[in-house]
Design a binder for these strands. Structure first.
Lengths: 236, 236
DNA sequence: CGGCTTCTTGATCAAGCTCAAGCTTAGTGG
DNA sequence: CCACTAAGCTTGAGCTTGATCAAGAAGCCG
């Protein structure tokens, strides 16, 4: 079997990955779809706790999460660390490396995960050939910018309980979009990661969740969460 | 004079704009440069306090700041507002609109400013034709993502005085890159805007600046700032 | 089962917010 | 060009939110 058709077969498995999503909607020809699948050269497993890439690594590929979930973190010289992103199945990863040719963050799997590898040089060339794929890439990057802007407003204006509520609603919406139950999910991050992502301490996360539970807004047992009252969470 | 050559002449005036920066380095042919200048169709003045675009506006163009400075803000339903970006001469604006075809933030001039208008449809087409311009656009978007990630770490991990110090150093670096004095500049934002950008109150901004001055790190008189001790600011 | 990490909860404390008042600067109209 | 007014800035006092420190409970994995 040729290398190319092997790659194509692997890509075809990639049913939930962002690159697939990237090309599915609004009219790609069969020819275009085929080209896109050629460029998704391989998949790669990432174990829980393992890094997909690290700050400073040479940027070569974008990644799309096939399964699992991955956090991105930025560390400061003094050792303080901040979780800057939380990526689920279908999300793209690595866009921060395009600008300087090196990754500007570290991506760590929150559970055993699998990603599609999209060699950037070939992908960029393909964008030039196929307008609809180019448009997808630009949308993807723009949406990442908007997502971060939204996170900026979370960290800039919200109180602790508002931050936690927004995270829960956010995750719920994202799981829903992926076809999972909207009211029940398992947080893969630790309280520490959640706190870092929200700019609060792990104790405050824990206390806030307890308070939400006491008020009947959610049920929580460790990492498992059930949302009972969406409206009340939105109203916080 | 033909419309095209008029546009070209206007673009040629655009000596400091991002699109020019976008195309200057590493080898564009004269032909490519000419094409780029064709696509920069016009410039537009924006008065202090006036909006270049607003949340919800249909996205049609990117903008590059020719002169002046512009803040981007996001408003929440309850009226709370957050400054999410601070853009100086040469910076691009409007990337957040690509994803959904509508602007996701409001851009307001901090002083009388002027921007280059880059109609996006034509620009995207040109990216497809010219790889070096495409690469520039991708770099620009990626760097915006990295910039926001950095701002996330500011809001997520730093104390108030660290935030103010980082802003001052950041502005200094950006002015330096633009060929201005690195130690002296005039803040165009009000204390309120600065506070919103940094996720603190205007009173805390004012107090922090006063404390820096008392310690001899800076001189400040209203919006004018002189940095006396870069190392001390970095060490905060 | 034992040793680890993670989570919860309590008590205390301080950074930064709020409210308030006076001052300075900049913009406007006579 | 000056006077007036509104916007912006500074500083103080007191209070609140969430951080810190601490200790024990609960999961989780080898």
């Amino acid at each position: 079997m040729s290398q190319v058709s092997q790659a194509r077969r692997r890509a075809a498995q990639c049913s939930t990955c962002a690159m697939r999503h990237l090309c599915m909607p609004e009219g790609l020809s069969a020819f275009e779809t085929e080209k896109l699948e050629d460029v998704i050269s391989a998949t790669r497993p990432v174990r829980r706790g393992e890094a997909l890439f690290r700050t400073g690594d040479t940027f070569e590929s974008l990644y799309a999460i096939r399964s699992g979930s991955i956090k991105t973190v930025v560390s400061r010289e003094d050792g303080r660390e901040q979780v800057t992103g939380l990526h689920l199945g279908g999300d793209a990863l690595g866009l921060d490396g395009i600008g300087e040719g090196r990754h500007m963050s570290t991506a760590i799997a929150l559970e055993d995960s699998s990603v599609c590898i999209v060699p950037y040089a070939r992908f960029e060339r393909m964008c030039r050939e196929t307008g609809s794929i180019q448009r997808r890439l630009h949308q993807m990057m723009s949406r990442e910018i908007v997502r971060e802007t939204r996170q900026l407003t979370t960290l800039g204006t919200l109180r602790a309980d508002e931050r936690v509520a927004r995270l829960l609603l956010d995750l719920s919406a994202r799981f829903t979009r992926r076809g999972y139950a909207s009211a029940e999910f398992t947080l893969r991050m630790t309280r520490d990661d959640i706190g870092s992502y929200l700019g609060i301490t792990l104790e405050t996360v824990s206390r806030t969740l307890s308070r939400f539970q006491a008020r009947g807004l959610i049920d929580t047992r460790g990492k498992f969460i059930r949302i009972n009252d969406f409206d009340a969470l939105r109203a916080i």
